[in-house]
Amino acid sequence: MINPFFKNNGPFKISDILQLINLDNFKITNDQKIIDIKDLFTSQKNEITFFHSKKYKNIANNTKASFCITTDILKKELPKSCIPLVVENVLVSTSKITSKFYSSSINDNFDYTARDITETKYKDKVEYGKNVLIGDNVTLGSNCLIGHNTIIEQNVSIGDNCSIGSNVIIRNTLIDNNVKVLDNCVIGKHGFGFFPINEKNLRYPHIGIVIIGENSEIGCGCTIDRGSMSNTVIGKNTFLDNQIHIAHNVKIGKNSIIAGQVGIAGSSILGNNVRIGGQAGISGHLTIGNNVEIAGGSGVIKNISDNSKVMGYPAKNIRDFLKDNK
């Protein structure tokens, strides 16, 4: 899928990329053009990717990228078709390259194209409150409602029969049919991604988007960050309670229910039919299986297999927790 929100400035010669990450002396036989930077799973020939953690070695084994930014220890996991570029800090180098390809993704400035809905083609097609702003190339389906003081920024797509509350900001997002987004939500802003370098934080560009499946509901005051390299995804028929934070690259399966004040850290993947109680926290880069139940207030710091019920901090089998806390 072509990214509808961020322009790709490429292609760039691999020699230009090597210079950017201080690998000027790296020997290349073909100064080929690199057309994009993507994650290990989606990257293709003539693209560059990155590999920074052994958690992703199974994906790295099969990546189709032509080049990969990685470490000396991890490079052995790459296929022969992928040339490793060994650097001191994988994520910093990846950030520099991503910024070169997608310079518009670094800052989250407001949408200069946004104008009052009464000045757009949707003034007679949807029901709306006061002070609603719509950006260029926005798509709104039939039978939609939009509350007061809401901003829907350029290129956002919203399906049929959707209800968007008041004081909502939506950007870099694709929303399917029959979705409700309640008041005071912020969807599609960049995530909490940066690196402290020489006492100055380096902001990591976020070129992913947010995708919300059909028949879902996003409760009041929720924040859903767009992905950094991949997308943040809310599966169909998934309901989020109020004041939930979904960090960048998180993927939640279908038919899941998440209670208020839950926080899910970046790049964690949740299966289908997951139930999470209020104020639970899930660490980043974890995999939560299908049909998992997580009790309120729990702290999840490791993967959870299918059909598990966990509780406590660190979260463990609920029977063991109750036995240990009689």
Rank of each mutant, 00 (worst) to 15 (best):
V250M: 14
I211W: 00
L174I: 15
S228R: 07
K130A: 15
L78Q: 06
N25C: 00
G312W: 03
F192Q: 13
D183S: 13
I294E: 04
Y102G: 00
S308L: 07
N155I: 02
S15V: 03
N58S: 14
I211F: 06
K13W: 07
I257E: 05
P11K: 09
G221L: 12
I158S: 06
L40I: 15
Y122W: 15
S142V: 13
R226P: 05
N172W: 01
I252H: 02
G165Q: 04
N201F: 11
K123V: 14
I17D: 00
I28V: 14
G221V: 11
C82L: 06
F50R: 02
V181L: 11
I2V: 15
P11N: 11
A265P: 04
V292C: 02
H148E: 15
Y128R: 02
P205E: 10
K326H: 05
Q243I: 14
N89W: 01
S283D: 11
S230M: 10
K189G: 08
E77L: 07
P4E: 10
Q243G: 01
S230H: 06
N107P: 00
V86I: 15
F5N: 03
N30V: 12
I276H: 04
I258G: 03
N172E: 07
K27A: 10
I14D: 02
F194Q: 09
G235T: 07
A259K: 05
F101I: 12
V186Y: 13
F12P: 02
F26H: 13
I17K: 05
A280L: 10
Q44L: 15
K57L: 13
N172L: 08
Q154M: 08
N22H: 14
E47P: 00
F6L: 10
F110N: 13
K80A: 14
N58H: 14
S308Y: 05
N249V: 14
K302S: 13
I234T: 01
F195N: 05
R319W: 01
N249L: 11
Q32L: 15
K236Y: 10
N61C: 03
H248R: 11
I269E: 13
L202K: 11
K13G: 12
V132S: 01
N22A: 14
S81Q: 13
Q261V: 09
G266T: 12
S298M: 03
